[in-house]
Design a protein around this nucleic acid. Structure first.
Lengths: 110, 110
DNA sequence: TATTTTTATCGTAATATTGCAATGTAATAT
DNA sequence: ATATTACATTGCAATATTACGATAAAAATA
């Protein structure tokens, strides 16, 4: 049906899935990596750098902002985007908690 | 269009996005967490545990298997799934490389 | 004021994802 | 041989995502 049955899952499961979803597009990964390098960027810079249309970049930025991984501050005509440090570390922790939860020494059949 | 312009991005960006995509559904997170707890599971166990239809679980398992995060071994009538340790650590490293790439002390405007 | 620059939003088309009933398949049990 | 059990696959409907042109809004500039 295309609609996820969120009510079947825990809050953590839905939350993790939502964070993963925002990372699940190369353009958004590229935007994040760009920010890791330059610390700040605006829509027009990304349009040049990524080669996607302005409306498309704007949409990706919106999704990143919606989950809180980036934040934007109006700077005259343009908007400066940067990583939200608190959210960044929160997501980082959720993911490492998940990935640290596996100990292969307990596995007998693989 | 619904189609990602993969050719605009680096291999790493596409790869990261693909791994994120497979984590971008609470059912698949739930399956992984189930495996972290029990180390092994089969389709029917998950159908009981998650409350999704057998065909749906089968589809989610297929996606997890396609990116290599889990592997299945036929055990008589049923199929035992478990985490693929190499892939697990590979994905874990890719994600931590991304998330370790941020140093808030360099950021002046947030 | 008119123009330019930058971004957001709307509308739309193409494609992808989610979920499940129905059906197919393969191994085991009766 | 037939039935049962466990999964995979197919086909379909509903919804979500991706991409972008067109347009709107808001600030800076001529």
């Amino acid at each position: 049906m295309g609609v996820t049955k969120s009510d079947l899952f825990t809050e953590t499961q839905n939350e993790l899935a939502n964070y993963a979803k925002v990372l699940a597009h190369p353009a958004r990964i590229a935007i994040i990596q760009f920010l890791l390098k330059t610390n700040t960027c605006c829509n027009s810079t990304l349009v040049e750098d990524l080669g996607l249309a302005q409306a498309t970049i704007s949409q990706h930025l919106k999704e990143l902002k919606n989950v809180g991984i980036i934040q934007g501050t109006v700077e005259g005509v343009s908007v400066n985007y940067c990583i939200n440090p608190e959210k960044w570390h929160y997501i980082k922790k959720m993911l490492s908690d998940l990935f640290d939860g596996y100990d292969p020494t307990y596995c007998s059949n693989c």
